[in-house]
C-alpha cells in the first residue's frame, strides 16, 4: 500500500505510457515518430480549449461556454480576416476574454453557479455567431488565410506547426500557473477559498480572470480551427466541449479545485488522443467506438484521479 501511495501522483502519465505501449505493441507503425507527431498535431485545437478549461476547473468551477466561444470565433475570424488581416487574431482573443469575463462576473457577483452562467453565456455567444454569420457556413479566402495564418498549419521538417503554437501556449500557461501572482491566487482559491479571502485576496477578481483566461484560450482554439478548415460556422466546433472537459479530468485536475494543473492537461489530452487513435489500430467498428471510448475512459479516470483530497465523494 505504501508503494501505491508513492506512485499515485504519477498515475496519469504512467497510464499514458502504458496505453501508448499497448497500442504500439499491437501495431508498431503507431509508434513511428511522424505518426505520433501527426496525431499530436491533430488534437491541438482540443488541447488549447482544454488548457483554458483547466483554469476554470482549477478553481472548482466549470466553463461550458468554451465550445460556443470557439464557434463564435470561427465566424468572427472568417468575416473579418478580409478587412483586418492578421489583426483579426487580436479581435478573436479579445472577444473570448470579454465573454469569459462576463461569465466570471455573473458567477461571482450574481452568485449564479458557473455550470449555469457559462452555459447561458454560451447561448449568447451562439446567438451572436448565428447573427454574424447569417446562419450559414463562411469561407476564408485561401490566399489571405495563408498570408496571415499560414504559419499555424504548415510543417517544419516532420513537426506540424500547430505543435509550436501549442508549446508556446503551454509555456505561457505554465508560467502563469507557477510563477505569477495570478497563478498562486488561483491555487489558493481552488484549494481554500475562505482562507484566500481571509488573507485579503480579492477572490472575485481572480475567479473572473480564470474564466476570462478560459474564454481567451477557447477563442485561440477556435481561431486555429477556422484556419485549419479555412472557414467558420456557428456549429463547426460542436463536439469539442465534452472531450475537452474529459481531457482535463483524466489528466488529474478534479472538479474539487486546487489540484492538478496545465501539465496534467497535456497528459489528459494525450490520453484522450491515444484512446481515440487506438480504435483505428484495433480496427474497432465505427459504431462501437463511442462505447469503447466511454468504458476505457471510466477505467482511466478511476486510475488517475487523486481521491486523497475528497472528503466525501459527491
Amino acid at each position: 500500500m505504501m508503494d501505491f501511495q508513492r506512485i499515485k501522483p504519477h498515475l496519469p502519465w504512467l497510464t499514458l505510457v502504458v496505453l501508448t505501449a499497448f497500442v504500439g505493441i499491437a501495431n508498431p507503425t503507431f509508434l513511428a515518430p511522424s505518426n505520433l507527431l501527426m496525431l499530436a498535431g491533430d488534437i491541438v485545437p482540443l488541447f488549447i480549449m482544454a488548457l483554458g478549461l483547466t483554469f476554470a476547473i482549477y478553481i472548482g468551477g466549470i466553463d461550458l461556454s468554451a465550445q460556443s466561444m470557439a464557434n463564435l470565433v470561427t465566424v468572427i475570424a472568417s468575416i473579418y480576416l478580409a478587412s483586418m488581416g492578421a489583426f483579426v487574431a487580436v479581435l478573436c482573443v479579445l472577444a473570448g476574454f470579454l465573454f469569459g469575463t462576463l461569465s466570471g462576473v455573473i458567477t461571482t457577483k450574481l452568485k449564479v453557479p458557473s455550470f449555469i452562467s457559462t452555459l447561458a453565456i454560451g447561448g449568447v455567444a451562439f446567438s451572436l455567431a448565428q447573427w454574424l454569420s447569417g446562419q450559414k457556413a463562411l469561407f476564408m479566402d485561401a490566399s489571405q488565410r495563408d498570408a496571415s495564418f499560414g504559419w499555424m498549419i504548415g510543417r517544419t521538417g516532420i513537426i506540424p506547426n500547430e505543435l509550436f503554437l501549442a508549446a508556446a501556449l503551454l509555456l505561457l500557461c505554465l508560467f502563469i500557473e507557477r510563477r505569477t501572482v495570478l497563478g498562486r491566487a488561483l491555487k489558493a482559491v481552488g484549494a481554500g477559498e475562505l482562507a484566500a479571502a481571509a488573507s485579503g485576496l480579492n477572490v472575485a477578481r481572480y475567479k473572473i480572470l480564470a474564466f476570462a483566461l478560459s474564454g481567451a484560450l477557447a477563442a485561440i482554439a477556435g481561431l486555429l480551427f477556422s484556419v485549419k478548415l479555412s472557414g467558420g460556422a456557428p456549429t463547426i466546433a460542436n463536439g469539442f466541449l465534452l472531450p475537452a472537459i474529459v481531457a482535463v479530468l483524466v489528466g488529474g485536475t478534479p472538479l474539487t479545485g486546487g489540484v492538478g494543473g496545465v501539465l496534467n492537461t497535456v497528459i489528459g489530452t494525450l490520453i484522450v488522443a491515444v484512446i481515440r487513435a487506438s480504435m483505428l489500430y484495433f480496427e474497432i467498428d465505427a459504431t462501437r467506438q463511442q462505447m469503447v471510448f466511454g468504458l476505457v475512459l471510466i477505467a482511466a479516470i478511476a486510475l488517475t484521479i487523486d481521491r486523497s483530497k475528497l472528503r466525501v465523494v459527491k
Binding site: 465534452l242 462501437r288 471510466i298
Partner: peptide
C-alpha cells in the same frame, strides 16, 4: 470506484450513447 459523479456519469453517458 469513488469517482465523483460528474466524471463517472459523464463517462458512463458516453457508454450509453455508444
Amino acid at each position: 470506484l469513488q469517482i465523483p459523479s460528474f466524471m463517472a456519469s459523464l463517462a458512463f453517458g458516453f457508454v450509453g450513447t455508444g
